[in-house]
Amino acid sequence: MNSIKIFADSTCDLSADLIKHYEIGIVPLYVTFESQSYRDGIELTPPELYAKVSETGKLPLTAAPSPSDFIQAFTPYVEQGQQIIYISLSSELSSTYQNAVIASKEFEQGRVEVFDSLNLSTGIGIQVLKAARAAEAGQNVQQILSLLAEIRPKVDTEFVIDSLDYLHKGGRCSGMQNVVASLLKIRPVIKVIDGKMTPAYKVRGSREKAFDQMVSNALSNKANMDRGTLFVTQTMAHEDAEKLRATLNETIQPQEVFITEAGCVICSHCGPKTIGIIYLKE
C-alpha cells in the first residue's frame, strides 16, 4: 500500500481499469431528476441518464459532494496513516473544490491536500493518472503537488458536441440557435481555458469533418506535445473513438491512447455522441 492515496471525483472519467490498477479513490458528484438524487457512476449510468432525459424532456441538476461526503471518503485512509491528494473538478465549474477544502480542514494539517485541476473529464484524469504514477514511483506529497502545478497549464482539452439539444435544454443556447445549428449541421467545439468551458470554433458539416479538424489541431501541436499519454473521451460514440485512436496512433505515435467514457455529470451538459481529445503540451 502506497503511503499516499490519490483521490479524484467522478468527473475525472478515468476507466474502471485505471482506477482499480492505481487504487484511485473516487468521490461521486450527484445527478438529480426532480426529487431523486443519484451518485454519478454508482447509482446512475450515462445510458440510464439519456433514457430519463428522453422520457422527461428535461435535464437533471448536478451537485457537488458535500464536505461530509469528502470527510467520509478520506477518513479511513487517514486513519490508516496515509496522506491524501485530492484532485478536483475545476473550481470555475463547481463548488466541489471548495467543499473538499472545507473537509480537509477537519484533518491534521498536511494529511489532506486539495488540488484544483482547473479542468474537466479526462482533462482532470490525465492529471490524476500522472499523480498516481508519481505516487507509485515513490514521490512524496510536495513532489507530486509540484508536478501537478507544472502540468496543469499544459493540459489541452478539446471536444466536439454533436448536437445543441442538451445545451438548449440546459439554457446555454436559445431555441433559434438550436434550430439554425440543426439545419446547417453546425457542431460546436469546446475547449477548456482557465478552468472554464469556452466555445472555441464551430464546424459546419459532418461529424467526420469535425473529427478531422480536432486531429488537425492536435497535429499542429505535435512538435510540442507530450506523446506519452493521450485520451479520447466519448459518450455513446465508441466506434468513432476507436477510429480517432487509430488515427492518433498512426499520425502522432504516442506511447498510449486510452479511450474513456464520460460520466453522467459531463453527459448531462454535453449530450450523447460528444467526443474529445486530451493531451499534455510539453
Rank of each mutant, 00 (worst) to 15 (best):
I4Q: 09
F7D: 02
F7E: 02
A8C: 11
D13Q: 02
S15P: 00
D17M: 02
K20Q: 15
Y22S: 03
V31R: 06
E34L: 07
Y38A: 07
R39F: 06
G41H: 09
I42Y: 13
I42M: 06
I42L: 12
E43T: 12
L44I: 10
T45W: 03
P47Y: 03
P47N: 05
A51Q: 11
V53E: 10
E55C: 02
P60M: 03
I71Y: 05
F74S: 09
E79G: 00
I84N: 14
Y86Q: 12
L93G: 08
L93W: 11
Q98L: 05
Q98Y: 10
K105D: 08
Q109S: 14
G110K: 02
R111W: 01
E113N: 04
F115R: 01
R133K: 15
R133Q: 15
A135F: 03
A137L: 06
I144A: 02
I144L: 05
S146F: 00
A149Y: 01
E150R: 05
T157N: 09
F159A: 06
F159W: 08
V160G: 04
I161Q: 10
L164H: 06
D165N: 12
Y166Q: 09
L167H: 08
H168N: 11
G171M: 03
V180K: 07
P188T: 07
P188A: 11
K191Q: 14
D194T: 01
M197E: 14
T198N: 14
P199L: 12
P199T: 09
G205D: 13
R207C: 06
R207Y: 12
A210G: 13
M214I: 00
S216C: 04
S216R: 12
K222A: 14
R227C: 08
T229V: 14
L230D: 01
H238E: 15
D240K: 12
R245T: 07
T247C: 15
I252R: 08
P254S: 13
Q255R: 12
Q255W: 01
E256A: 10
E261Y: 04
C264S: 15
S268Q: 09
T274W: 07
T274F: 07
I275Y: 10
I277T: 04
I278E: 04
I278T: 14
E282K: 13
E282F: 02
